[in-house]
């Protein structure tokens, strides 16, 4: 009897983990039935490159949401840090160094969020709503509302967003490498465990001697850093920094996290789910384009898919 319960529980756990994956497979099957060119290697590689930016941002968002928070400012952090990177490149700094400094600046912007939330005791939604506006404003001030171009012709820099390595787009490689590193951080380090603990029960985490404020600041910094990294890919791909870059990216990132089965109330979720969630959104975008669905209608479909995914998840939980 006991083993039956245990068995049932395990099956439940597996379906919970596999749910998003099954969803992705089903979507791929449906799309490729309607348009077989979806499965062509070139298209799939293209899809991975398109997904990379959202996936990187969504990884950071996963950590934030696991602590029970939210980060609305990721798109603006992407814009501001990529503008700063481009500015440094224009002024002659080595592009790779500019990207590294830009990523660190992204982490600082994330730290500002973290400090507002912990030291300022602001709700994450409010704090990041404010910084979303503020960082966007700073981007516009810095760029004067114009794109920054003339970034030089460093090969390494061009490779970052446009290149291939062993036939695989470099952004996709970045996406998978980042996944591997973040997976280890989330599942194998005390920092990852603390991230879950804070989202599961912040008071208990505090009383257990976890420096909750420090962990939160680190989590938001990580989200900022990953947004800036996504920004670097975008700058390389467009060979310019756009002042309006990253608008509404927070929504796609949150959608990827939620599609991946992470609970918005914190404490429960997996980063592999987020990667799959980002792939689902990418497949939808790519597939609907191939099927010639208008971009207006695409938004409707995306919204419906999110609702269906969450409804299925609820049902399983009950």
């Amino acid at each position: 009897m006991d083993s039956a319960i245990k068995g049932a529980k395990q099956v439940g756990n597996i379906t919970q983990k596999l749910g998003p994956f099954v969803g992705l497979l089903a979507l791929i099957v449906v799309v490729s039935i309607f348009n077989s060119s979806f499965l062509e290697p070139l298209n799939l590689l293209n899809l991975l490159r398109q997904v990379a930016i959202n996936a990187l941002i969504a990884y950071g968002m996963t950590f934030v949401i696991l602590t029970g928070g939210i980060d609305l400012s990721v798109g603006s952090v992407l814009a501001l840090s990529s503008a700063l990177m481009a500015g440094m490149m224009v002024s002659g700094l080595d592009p790779i160094l500019a990207i590294i400094i830009g990523c660190l600046l992204g982490a600082v912007m994330g730290a500002v969020n973290g400090l507002l939330i912990t030291k300022g005791k602001m709700a994450p939604f409010i704090a990041t709503l404010a910084t979303m506006t503020m960082f966007r404003g700073l981007t516009l001030v810095y760029t004067d509302g114009n794109p920054i171009t003339g970034l030089g012709d460093s090969y390494a820099f061009q490779l970052f967003g446009r290149g291939y390595f062993l036939g695989i787009p470099v952004p996709a490689i970045t996406m998978f490498l980042a996944f591997a590193v973040l997976w280890v951080i989330l599942h194998k380090t005390p920092f990852g465990r603390k991230t879950y603990a804070i989202g599961g029960n912040e008071k208990a985490a505090l009383i257990s001697g976890i420096n909750v404020s420090r962990v939160k600041v680190m989590v938001y910094s990580l989200a900022g850093l990953l947004s800036a990294l996504a920004g670097a890919i975008l700058v390389s791909r467009l060979d310019s920094a756009q002042p309006t870059a990253g608008e509404a990216y927070e929504l796609d990132a949150i959608a990827a996290v939620v599609l991946g089965g992470t609970s918005l109330s914190g404490g429960r979720g997996l980063i592999i789910g987020t990667l799959i969630g980002a792939l689902i959104i990418g497949t939808l975008n790519n597939g609907l384009n191939l099927l010639g669905v208008s971009s207006f209608f695409q938004m409707v479909v995306k919204g419906v898919v999110i609702i269906i995914a969450v409804l299925i998840d609820r049902k399983k939980a009950a």
């Binding site: 380090t189 005390p190 465990r193 603390k194 879950y196 603990a197 599961g200 029960n201 008071k203 208990a204 985490a205 009383i207 257990s208 001697g209 976890i210 404490g267 429960r268």
Partner: peptide
């Protein structure tokens, strides 16, 4: 329940929480 345990955590993670350092 409110301050002692992370209820969604397995027993293992709850017990290990304040001592993570010692086996890292």
């Amino acid at each position: 329940k409110g301050e002692g345990l992370v209820l969604d955590f397995p027993i293992k993670d709850n017990i290990a929480l304040p001592s993570l350092r010692s086996f890292t």
